[in-house]
């Protein structure tokens, strides 16, 4: 299980990748995350998370075509792998199961 550890930020990025299947790339993830979280994120943090997850086998990547945008540089698109999905599921299941153990007290 150590291999399959997933940090909090990594999880967010992985979720984004999964949500934008095969269309997710650095800047897209950045903008969506910033919008959802409502705070500034540094692009390098996203790249670090993506590279780590790629090494762990949670995501896979491919280059897009050359356009005139981005100084002629290709985009790199990420897609979630089967393993990545499983890790995400496990994480979700774990959280829900614990969440359900919360006794029903009013938290007013």
């Amino acid at each position: 299980m150590i291999e399959h550890s997933l940090g909090e930020f990594e999880e967010l990025v992985l979720l984004m990748v999964a949500a934008h299947h095969d269309e997710a790339y650095g800047v897209l993830i950045l903008e969506n995350l910033e919008e959802k979280l409502g705070k500034k994120i540094n692009i390098s943090a996203i790249h670090v998370a993506l590279k780590r997850m790629e090494n762990k086998g949670f995501v896979k990547s491919r280059f897009g075509g050359i356009t005139n945008e981005r100084g002629g540089r290709r985009k790199k698109f990420y897609a979630i792998t089967a393993l990545g999905k499983r890790v995400l599921d496990n994480q979700y299941a774990l959280r829900t199961s614990i969440y359900q153990q919360i006794p029903k007290i009013s938290f007013s």
């Binding site: 650095g26 950045l30 981005r70 290709r74």
Partner: peptide
């Protein structure tokens, strides 16, 4: 390529 592209964007 990826990093430079994203940064430029």
């Amino acid at each position: 390529e990826e990093i430079e592209g994203d940064l430029t964007e």
